[in-house]
C-alpha cells in the first residue's frame, strides 16, 4: 500500500508536493499468539530510504526517542519491556554522543499475558520522530489497537 499515489497527477508526490505530504514512516500493527495464554504484539515501522526512527533507548541530549504506552486493561498484562532489534549506533559529533536508530524497517515487540481465552484488544499509543540528513519532522503520536484472536 506504499504506492497510494495516483499514477498520474500524484506522481507529483515524488517531487513538488513532497513538502506537503511528507510521510516517510508508516506504521502497521499485528498480534501473534504464542501459547493459549501468551501473545506478542508487533508494531512495525516501514521507513523510506534516508529517514531514521530512533531507538527507545536514545540517551538524553539527542534526538527524540520512540516510546510506547500500553493502555492498562484487565484482559492482559505486559511481560517485560517492549523489545527492539539491534539498532544502528553511530557517534554523532553534533550531539557529542552515540545515537541509535533504525532505517528501512523495524519491528518492536511487546509480550503480553492473557487473562482469559476470549479475543482481547490491546490498545495504546506510540510517539516517534523521524529525521533524514536534511531535516526533522514533528513527532507524531499515534494510537493503535490490536486484536488478539
Amino acid at each position: 500500500m506504499k504506492k497510494l499515489l495516483l499514477s498520474g497527477a500524484l506522481l507529483l508526490g515524488a517531487c513538488a508536493a513532497q513538502a506537503q505530504i511528507l510521510k516517510p514512516v508508516k506504521w502497521a500493527y499485528a498480534a501473534k499468539k504464542t501459547s493459549p495464554t501468551e501473545a506478542v504484539i508487533l508494531l512495525k515501522a516501514t521507513i523510506e530510504p534516508g529517514w531514521h526512527v530512533y531507538s527507545q533507548h536514545v540517551k538524553d541530549g539527542g534526538p527524540v526517542k520512540t516510546t510506547f504506552t500500553f493502555t492498562p486493561a484487565k484482559a492482559y498484562t505486559l511481560v517485560g519491556k517492549t523489545q527492539e532489534p539491534t539498532p544502528v549506533t553511530r557517534f554523532e559529533k553534533t550531539f557529542d554522543m552515540e545515537v541509535s536508530y533504525f532505517a528501512t524497517s523495524v519491528i518492536f515487540q511487546q509480550k503480553v499475558k492473557l487473562a482469559g481465552p476470549g479475543p482481547v484488544t490491546v490498545a495504546g499509543k506510540l510517539e516517534y520522530m523521524t529525521c533524514d540528513d536534511e531535516k526533522c519532522l514533528p513527532p507524531e503520536e499515534l494510537p493503535f489497537s490490536v486484536l488478539i484472536k
Binding site: 534526538p63 529525521c131 533524514d132
Partner: peptide
C-alpha cells in the same frame, strides 16, 4: 531549529 535536531545542529 532545536537542540535535538541533528540536521539543524549540523
Amino acid at each position: 531549529w532545536a537542540s535535538w535536531c541533528g540536521p539543524c545542529r549540523r
